[in-house]
């Protein structure tokens, strides 16, 4: 564990909690892409199957359980409890255009042609594009609630910090995972546009609104 990964995991946890809390408190999922949240639930489910096969540490196991349970709770709130507030018209990204190519790529490019490893690879590739429906929805509505932008900032920051974690681990441990690094780079690049808007608008107290 290193400082970058520690802050990154904390930022990821913060993002998940911020979103769950926002939906629960406001009793509304307006402006939230349910499709992205379903993709994140799939990401965690396919990545953390090793909960059943290997134990790494109490931290590792407990965080995985928290991530999985919060992501399913979020999907439940969006599609069941507060379904009336779900904005399906603007959450119209065709996720099959993400899942199918990512699934194919995971079968073609992986570290080991074993089921758990292919599922892990699928999860890594899927996570890198899972935020697209949410970003697409914001571009369609032309705006985002400030709390939603904080959620997105924490979510984007987490994988950006993982890039520094991989630099650290390569330098100090010789650890190197090309699949995770490339996917993490793609994932972080997808947030750049949002990061720019977040820093120039939200941090200056303005509302995030895209030129309609």
């Amino acid at each position: 564990m290193n400082i970058f990964r520690g802050i990154a995991d904390f930022s990821h946890l913060a993002a998940i909690i911020i979103l769950l809390h926002k939906i629960w408190k406001s009793r509304s999922c307006a402006g939230i892409s349910g499709k992205s949240q379903i993709l994140f639930a799939i990401v965690f489910t396919t990545r953390y199957l090793d909960l059943l096969t290997s134990f790494i540490s109490l931290y590792n196991t407990s965080m995985k359980v928290i991530y999985i349970s919060c992501s399913y709770a979020t999907v439940y709130l969006i599609y069941m409890k507060f379904r009336a507030t779900y904005d399906g018209n603007h959450d119209s990204f065709r996720v099959e255009f993400l899942v199918v190519p990512v699934g194919g790529l995971a079968v073609l490019i992986n570290h080991d042609f074993a089921l758990l490893e292919i599922l892990w690879t699928f999860s890594i590739y899927l996570e890198s594009v899972a935020i697209l429906p949410q970003l697409f929805m914001i571009s369609k509505t032309g705006e985002a609630e400030t709390i939603t932008t904080h959620y997105l900032f924490c979510l984007g920051l987490y994988r950006a910090l993982y890039l520094f974690n991989w630099i650290w681990r390569f330098y100090f441990e010789g650890f190197f995972d090309m699949i995770a690094i490339v996917a993490g780079l793609v994932q972080t690049v997808l947030y750049c546009d949002f990061f720019y808007l977040y820093v120039t608008k939200v941090l200056k107290g303005k509302k995030l609104s895209l030129p309609a």
Partner: peptide
Amino acid sequence: ADESATHDEL
């Protein structure tokens, strides 16, 4: 590439 057989990251 020295990716870990068991993935120790979240």
